[in-house]
């Protein structure tokens, strides 16, 4: 009889431990499910296509050159291009037509 009662107690204890473990496991899953919509939203923003065609590159702020500096660069570019075109007109060759200048706007 005593042996029988001991077996029943051990069985009940085992059952309680199993129930507690199951409860803990299902609670963690529920928390993960709650967190999932946030991940899905993130996935929608950046679709995980390997060969994605519609890649949206976030606009990088360009370093702003002051307008006065830009106008000086344009001035310099025009003068250099003018000089290069004059050289071509004096000796018209393909090489002179496409000769390089040190203009900051083409580098």
């Amino acid at each position: 009889m005593e042996m029988f009662l001991m077996a029943v107690c051990i069985s009940l204890f085992g059952l309680a431990v199993t129930a507690a473990a199951f409860g803990a496991a299902t609670q963690r899953e529920q928390m993960q499910e709650d967190a999932l919509p946030e991940r899905e939203t993130a996935a929608k923003v950046v679709p995980a296509h390997f060969f994605a065609e519609d890649i949206v590159v976030p606009a990088q702020p360009m370093p702003k050159v002051p307008i006065e500096a830009l106008l000086l660069q344009i001035d310099s570019h025009v003068r250099l291009e003018h000089a290069a075109a004059e050289s071509f007109l004096q000796y018209p060759t393909t090489a002179l037509l496409h000769s390089r200048t040190c203009s900051p706007l083409v580098h």
């Binding site: 291009e81 003018h82 290069a84 075109a85 004059e86 071509f88 496409h98 083409v106």
Partner: peptide, 17 residues
């Protein structure tokens, strides 16, 4: 005529780039 030739050359250089 000179100016036309000059600007033709300049235009072609820009096109090339």
């Amino acid at each position: 005529g000179r100016r036309l030739q000059l600007f033709q050359a300049m235009w072609l250089r820009e096109m090339q780039r």
